[in-house]
Simulated assay, not measured.
Amino acid sequence: MHLKNSTEPNVILMIDDNPTDVLLIKEAFALCGENYEVYVAEDGAYALEFLSQQDQYCHVPHPDIILLDLNMPRKSGLEVLKELKDDPDLKSIPVIIYTSSKTKADVRSAYLSHANGYIKKSIDFDDCIKIANSINDYWFSTSTLYEP
């Protein structure tokens, strides 16, 4: 375990296939006043390659947190979440579900699969800024993240 240097960026992996949602949250984090690197995997299969640092992802950093959409092609968010939480090298990374679904079944499935949070997406930019600030305040200011 190493302690993160204060000049190192906070690394977020966003797993989402919607370019508008990605752009909104990236812009919102840019306004948080902190140093962020937001990486994007367009689906669950790419996300798992990223996290295992395979192929084109061989030099990417280990994410501090993951924002995970549930509804994606090839491999759903719940499938990715289950794989992450079953992997001894990845299960300590906080996974926040960031999705348009707010059905009780999806919320229940996410938490039963060990999600660390569940946030409903918004297309309103002011809401996205609030979401980014709340993630920043809790995960990067209040919490102590495990760093392998």
Rank of each mutant, 00 (worst) to 15 (best):
M1E: 15
M1C: 11
H2G: 13
L3R: 14
L3I: 15
K4Q: 06
K4S: 09
N5G: 14
N5H: 12
S6I: 14
P9Q: 05
N10S: 10
N10T: 14
V11F: 06
L13K: 07
M14A: 10
M14H: 10
I15D: 00
D16M: 06
D16V: 02
D16N: 13
D17K: 01
D17C: 04
D17F: 02
N18T: 05
P19L: 10
T20C: 03
D21L: 03
L24T: 00
L24A: 05
E27A: 12
A28H: 12
F29S: 04
A30K: 09
A30M: 08
C32Q: 15
C32E: 07
G33K: 13
N35A: 11
E37M: 10
V40P: 04
V40E: 13
A41T: 13
D43R: 03
D43G: 00
G44Q: 01
A45V: 03
A45K: 06
Y46H: 06
A47C: 07
A47N: 07
A47Y: 03
E49Q: 05
F50C: 09
F50K: 02
L51T: 09
Q53P: 00
D55H: 13
Q56G: 08
Q56I: 14
C58T: 11
H59F: 13
V60P: 01
P61Q: 10
P63Q: 11
P63K: 08
P63A: 08
D64Q: 11
I65M: 13
I65C: 12
L67R: 08
L67H: 12
L68T: 09
L68W: 07
D69F: 00
L70V: 00
N71Y: 01
P73Y: 04
P73R: 06
R74Q: 13
R74N: 06
S76D: 03
S76G: 04
G77Q: 02
G77P: 07
E79W: 02
V80Y: 05
V80A: 01
V80D: 01
V80F: 03
L81V: 10
K82Y: 08
E83P: 08
E83W: 04
K85H: 04
K85M: 05
K85G: 02
P88I: 04
S92M: 04
I93H: 11
I93L: 06
I93F: 13
I96G: 05
Y98R: 06
T99R: 09
S101P: 14
K102C: 07
K102N: 11
D106F: 00
D106T: 03
V107F: 10
R108D: 14
S109P: 01
A110R: 02
A110I: 12
L112N: 14
S113W: 09
S113E: 08
S113F: 04
A115S: 12
A115V: 10
G117T: 15
Y118F: 06
S122D: 15
I123Y: 14
I123D: 01
D124R: 10
F125I: 10
D127A: 01
K130Q: 09
I131K: 13
I131E: 02
I131H: 12
A132T: 02
A132S: 05
A132V: 00
N133K: 08
N133R: 02
I135R: 00
I135E: 03
I135N: 01
N136F: 09
D137F: 11
Y138D: 07
W139C: 11
F140Q: 12
F140H: 12
S141W: 00
T142H: 09
T142E: 05
T142K: 15
T144M: 03
E147N: 15
P148M: 08
P148C: 13
P148Q: 06
